[in-house]
Nucleic acid binder design. Structure first.
Lengths: 235, 235
DNA sequence: GGTCAGGTGGACGGTGCCGTCCGCTTACGT
DNA sequence: ACGTAAGCGGACGGCACCGTCCACCTGACC
């Protein structure tokens, strides 16, 4: 599971020793450049959230009020820009993930973890792409991923042992759930969010080891029309 | 729900009286043209199934062994080609849908309907796009759709009345489920298919009005890695 | 205030796709 | 056999995007 992908901490000690250290630490930048960098990131977040990861780079540049060259100077490739734009979200993910691991009630931890991740997944268009693919070229993916996966397996096992998850629940069901939720990401957020919640509720009720004879309540079902991916173009 | 979109029956009586009658009836074509038309459709099915609806038209033409112009002559726009390519699948959908409506056991009817649709959704890449969007410009969508929706609501209501579906089940949960399953469509078919089955099982167990105290068995969980949309390029 | 590395923006070449145009080919009727 | 209309394919113009290049600014430091 691609949680806690290495996120830039703006900490000089975390300089990337790898050859791919294209994104120099913002602290070294001239203040105007630093300001532009921020503007680009802000614009990138907005544009990618609204239009998805396929949005043209020039749109981001225009929205940031800078030229394309400036943007490419900081983020030499599209992937780099994407990774940087979603970096803090990824970091937040990592935090939530650690909170979940620390939760004494594993079932509750797992639920809140997935609830939060799914919310982001469905609210921020384009986050799904970054989250799912993880940009093997841009970020050192493998280690963090393996670590997250191990933690997740452990959490799941704890929840099973506690009698909160059915015996035949599998760690692989979590990517499954994530993928399923990301299928809702194309909808406009105001329907996608309740939809995701409802789906999550359905699934969690199914995940229980001992379901009650009458199923628990569901969040409301949003009306949704499937026609088209619903670009929320901000001009 | 976009089931049973108007599918060409190759029946002369079904001539489109609308202005959009660009796709002349194959019977009128010269035999060589007719043959080429079939070749194009076959190639389109293959290419779109393997690469998704974004595949370039020229790829289809090349695979069919015809020039681009030939292709565009028959299918003046990309949408037309897509619609035509998935026409029979859509027709099959309609058949399955009617079978489901006719099933004396509404719960069983609903399950098999969704099982089949989901299988197609996950097996044929690109079918999801066509199925979900339904091409309002190309096909007369509204009537069929409304009809399907009404039938579906009726089926759901029957299943609820029969005590097979929980009271708070909503017709809108079906698009929800479809969307969720289509989220798996990016995976390679050999993992996507079992994944879809498992997801469907989880959900249906949750849909039951009176779940058993021990949940029923699940189909196996496939290992899946989320990294990337997994183009299955057939060269 | 001068100099210059670092920063900037717009213009540019490259690429991949769409959908059309036009001159050649082929099947069918006489 | 031959004329004609239908069919054909490659080449083409247009467009959108990517990523680079270069000539012009600007802020920090002497």
């Amino acid at each position: 599971m691609p949680d806690e992908i290495s996120h830039n901490t703006d900490d000089p000690a975390s300089a990337a020793p790898l050859g791919t250290a294209v994104d120099r630490r913002p602290a070294d930048l001239r203040p105007d450049a630093r300001r532009n960098r921020e503007r680009v990131l802000k614009a990138a977040r907005e544009v990618f959230a609204a239009q998805g990861t396929d949005a043209p780079v020039s749109t981001v540049a225009r929205r940031a009020g800078v030229g394309v060259a400036t943007l490419y100077r900081r983020f030499p490739t599209r992937s780099a820009l994407l990774a940087a734009a979603f970096d803090d979200q990824l970091g937040e993910c990592a935090t939530v993930f650690e909170e979940a691991l620390a939760d004494p009630n594993p079932g509750h931890g797992l639920y809140t973890l997935l609830e939060k991740v799914c919310t982001t997944l469905v609210t921020d268009r384009g986050f799904d792409t970054v989250f799912m693919t993880g940009f093997p070229e841009t970020l050192d993916y493998g280690r963090e991923r393996a670590c997250a996966e191990a933690g997740l397996t452990h959490l799941v096992q704890r929840a099973i042992d506690a009698g909160q998850l059915r015996e035949d629940f599998d760690t692989a069901d979590i990517p499954l759930l994530l993928l399923a939720v990301s299928g809702l990401a194309g909808q406009p957020p105001e329907t996608a969010l309740p939809a995701a919640r409802r789906l999550l509720t359905y699934l969690f009720q199914s995940f229980q080891a001992h379901p009650p004879s009458r199923p628990g309540p569901l969040p409301p079902a949003p009306r949704m029309d499937l026609t088209g991916p619903h670009r929320t173009d901000g001009v």
